[in-house]
Design a protein around this nucleic acid. Structure first.
Length: 545
RNA sequence: UGGGGUGUAGCCAAGCGGUAAGGCAGUGGGUUUUGAUCCCACCAUGCGCAGGUUCGAGUCCUGCCACCCCAGCCA
């Protein structure tokens, strides 16, 4: 976090500053389309754009690229702002919308017509596709390409005035139908869409396309470095063409970097949307999703996401980052600060048969090293719970478990010896009878006993019933493409348990916290005081074999 | 077989002609009442391949190969 990043973009900016190609202040922008929630791939771009500006004393705009009213909505502009803010970035007064510039955009389009650089085309979408040519063959000119400037001006005006139906006409740039770059084959600049826009309402029925809009907005806002992902590399000539042919005295350079790939995850908004629509997950904030809202609900700290993005770096190489790196960042962020408590996910009842009288109060540190986190009282009594998986009738020497006739230490409490196991009809243990060693109390142990296992536990008197949700990867393939949810989606990605959490963790509202030996947890948003729900953010690292 | 890109360890990623950073994962060891944390050590005679230039090449040149992106009136 503290080492300053040196990637090809920051190097470029440093050079531009030194060579005075920008005058002192660098300006970037994060330009999401409000047609979905943000995901961790967007976080990479957000961290880059806002991070770079902060590092070089510059400014960053949050600009919504809202040129397609058929897909966009106010819900998404709200969620996106919330997510960017939560990630820790501030656009101050630089919140803009491409739709703020619709009037200027329209007049720039008119300019293009006047310079004979654009024309109104009556071809249908299918006809345009058919005359675009292929990757290896040139396209052919539209029969409307030779319309007079005056006619084009008139027609474009009438498009705006609503005289034509959707799709009846488009405005096209007049470039080169034989260009090897398909984006340069007279690309469509404006289309007719009789659709209300979430910000401009019914003011417009013609909407500009990305290639025409984005570069102009960048120029108008004085963006000194327009950073985008690799798939726009082929659009750069068009980005430049538009700015070169319109009266704007500012021309940002477009610089492309590779998108983030995270194994066992999808970043595609299309696939994310279908996951939600098909009920595979609960919504955009499902804790199994790599969305910012999902990560936040799961309990992942924003700082961990920032750290992750910084560790991943910025290059032009296609990448598929392992989830272990994200897990590492989450653990690293929580290790020093998360209070420790104990929770039993799959409880097994334990009766301490030689325990009599009042419960004993024990003291437990809330963190093994960070003493500022203080300590809490634990009660030890006749009945308590341990983790089912911590008991086995017999176990190898390698395994650290409580066994029949074996010893184990209850963390911060006493050493116990299991003297009997009671099974249900199917042979599953339902209760353990143990004896505790009176002089083995933590901190004042004179028993001389050294059990291999230290177990987490919750005494019955101190236990709060809680739903505990454990997550696994949503997909069981490293690079899901969304083509087959049936085979690719992990049916076991959510396992909900009814367990017990020690009272202090619930009452003190530790969030996030660590349940020792189980992982880091956070309250789910569905949690209520009398029905706590915990999400496991990430398990602990384990060297167990 | 058009155009645009990218190839350095299992995964990221530095390197900008002077003899392969760092992180994650992994392995071995130490500390430890969380199989956690922390600490130490190990982990590319090798940089997609083949030639060439050079005293010297991951870095320069040539030729191959592989992979990614592009034929929306999406962004």
């Amino acid at each position: 976090m503290s080492t300053l990043a040196t990637d090809f973009i920051r190097n470029r900016i440093r050079e531009d500053l030194e060579n005075d190609v920008v005058d002192g202040t660098i300006v970037t922008r994060f330009p999401p389309e409000p047609n979905g929630y943000l995901h961790i791939g967007h976080a990479k771009s957000i961290c880059l754009n806002f991070g770079v500006a902060a590092e070089f004393g510059g400014k960053t705009y949050l600009r919504f690229d809202d040129t397609n009213p058929s897909k966009e909505s106010e819900e998404f502009v709200h969620s996106i702002q919330e997510d960017v803010r939560w990630l820790g970035f501030d656009w101050e007064d630089r919140l803009t919308f491409a739709s703020d510039y619709f009037e200027q955009l329209y007049s720039f389009a008119t300019q293009l017509i006047e310079k004979d650089k654009a024309f109104v085309c009556d071809l249908t979408a299918d006809e345009i596709r058919a005359t675009r040519g292929t990757l290896t063959e040139p396209g052919s000119d539209s029969p409307f390409r030779t319309r007079s400037i005056a006619e084009n001006l008139d027609l474009f005006r009438r498009m705006r005035d609503g005289e034509y139906a959707d799709g009846a006409k488009v405005l096209r740039a007049k470039i080169d139908m034989a260009s090897p770059n398909l984006n340069m084959r007279d690309p469509v600049l404006y289309r007719i869409l009789h659709l209300a826009h979430h910000r401009t309402g019914d003011s417009w029925c013609v909407y500009p396309l990305y290639d025409f809009t984005h570069c102009i907005c960048d120029a108008l806002e004085g963006i000194t470095h327009s950073l985008c992902t690799l798939e726009f590399e082929d659009h750069r000539p068009l980005y430049d063409w538009v700015l070169d042919n319109v009266s704007i005295n500012f021309h940002p350079p477009q610089i492309e970097f590779s998108r983030l790939g995270l194994e066992f995850n999808v970043m595609s908004k299309r696939i994310l949307t279908s996951l939600i629509d098909s009920g595979q997950v609960e919504g955009w904030d499902d804790p199994r999703l790599p969305t910012i809202a999902g990560l936040r609900r799961r309990g992942v700290p924003a700082a961990a996401i920032r750290d992750f993005c910084s560790r991943v770096g910025v290059t032009k190489q296609a990448n598929l980052v392992e989830t272990s790196l994200l897990d590492f960042c989450v653990r690293a962020e929580l290790e020093d600060t998360a209070p420790r408590g104990m929770a039993v996910v799959e409880p097994l009842l334990v009766t301490v048969i030689n325990f009599e009288g009042d419960d004993i109060e024990l003291e437990a540190r809330n963190h093994p090293k960070n003493l500022e986190l203080g300590s809490r009282r634990l009660t030890f009594g006749r009945e308590l719970y341990i983790e089912r998986s911590d008991f086995a009738v017999t176990a190898s020497k390698k395994q650290r478990k409580l066994t029949l006739n074996g010893l184990a230490r209850l963390r911060y409490g006493f050493i116990v010896e299991c003297v009997d196991v009671i099974n249900d009809d199917s042979g599953l243990p339902i209760e353990l009878k143990v004896r505790y060693v009176e002089n083995s109390r933590s901190g004042q142990d004179t028993s001389g006993l050294k059990p291999k296992a230290t177990l987490h536990w919750v005494s019955k008197a101190n236990a709060v019933h809680a739903e505990i949700r454990l997550f696994e990867r949503l997909f069981n393939v490293r690079e899901p493409d969304g083509s087959s949810f049936e085979s690719d989606v992990n049916g076991n990605s959510l396992r909900s348990h009814h367990g017990f959490v020690e009272r202090a963790a619930v009452e003190s509202k530790w969030n996030p916290c660590q349940f020792e030996r189980n992982g880091f947890f956070a309250f789910d948003s569905s949690s209520t005081p009398d029905r706590p729900v915990f999400n496991r953010i990430v398990s602990l690292m384990s060297s167990k074999k």
